[in-house]
Amino acid sequence: MRRFPVVRTCLGASVLIGALTAAAPASAPLVALSRIEPGLYQLKEVGSSAPPKSLCIANAAVLIQLEHPDANCSRFVIDDTPDSATVHYTCPGSGHGRTVVKIATPRSFDLETQGIVNRAPFDIDMQGRRVGDCDPRKAALR
């Protein structure tokens, strides 16, 4: 009857590996964001009369930290489905945020992000629409 301790050990190892795998998705590509087609996007703030901003998206992960673009942040994936991703991130010394991206089509999305940047709060709701191609090396917000 020594099979049970072996099974229990294997099961314990599987649970540990599962726990480690569950912690890993913060650096793994998000399913929802992988659906966004690379290209030039216009980001229009909902309810604002300001002109839209342009963003060249080579990797849609840039959308998670729009207010902390160059910060080295840790991320915690709250939800990731084919249609939506929710991520909380913390940037030591710069602040933190929570971003929700809802995919309408591979060329359009809604984004809600809020948090603290440089000791000031932000709360932004915007829509992104692909408007063409761009040079992926120029992925800066304009």
Rank of each mutant, 00 (worst) to 15 (best):
Y41E: 03
Y41Q: 08
Y41I: 08
Q42E: 15
Q42P: 05
Q42I: 09
Q42M: 12
K44S: 13
K44P: 03
K44Y: 04
K44L: 07
K44H: 12
E45V: 15
E45T: 15
E45L: 13
V46Y: 05
V46N: 10
V46I: 15
G47D: 15
S48A: 15
S48F: 15
S48Q: 13
S49P: 04
S49R: 13
S49D: 15
P51K: 15
P52E: 06
S54E: 09
S54I: 02
L55C: 10
L55V: 10
L55W: 06
C56V: 09
I57Q: 02
I57G: 02
I57F: 07
I57D: 01
I57R: 01
A58L: 04
A58H: 07
A58M: 05
A58Y: 03
N59I: 03
N59S: 11
N59Q: 08
A60M: 05
A60E: 02
A60R: 01
A61I: 01
A61L: 02
A61G: 06
A61K: 04
V62R: 11
V62S: 15
V62K: 11
L63A: 07
L63F: 03
I64E: 00
I64P: 00
I64C: 02
I64K: 01
Q65I: 02
Q65D: 12
L66K: 04
L66A: 08
E67A: 12
E67L: 07
E67Y: 09
E67V: 06
H68Q: 07
H68M: 06
H68S: 03
H68F: 01
H68T: 02
H68I: 01
P69N: 08
P69V: 06
P69M: 09
P69E: 07
D70H: 14
D70C: 05
D70I: 07
A71Q: 08
N72Y: 04
C73E: 09
C73T: 09
C73H: 04
S74A: 15
S74E: 12
S74L: 12
S74G: 14
R75M: 07
R75H: 06
R75I: 02
R75Q: 08
F76Y: 12
F76I: 13
V77H: 00
V77L: 01
I78D: 13
I78W: 06
I78K: 14
D79N: 09
D79C: 04
D79M: 08
D80K: 04
D80L: 05
T81S: 14
T81Y: 10
T81M: 09
P82Q: 07
P82N: 07
P82L: 08
D83K: 12
D83N: 13
S84F: 00
S84K: 10
A85K: 02
A85Q: 01
T86E: 03
T86M: 05
T86Y: 01
T86K: 09
V87F: 00
V87Q: 00
V87Y: 00
V87A: 00
H88W: 06
H88L: 06
H88Y: 10
H88S: 11
H88I: 05
Y89S: 05
Y89F: 14
Y89E: 03
Y89Q: 04
Y89C: 05
T90L: 05
T90F: 13
C91D: 02
C91P: 00
P92H: 07
P92T: 09
P92L: 10
P92S: 14
P92N: 11
G93R: 14
S94G: 05
S94R: 08
S94L: 06
G95S: 10
G95W: 00
H96D: 11
H96L: 10
H96E: 14
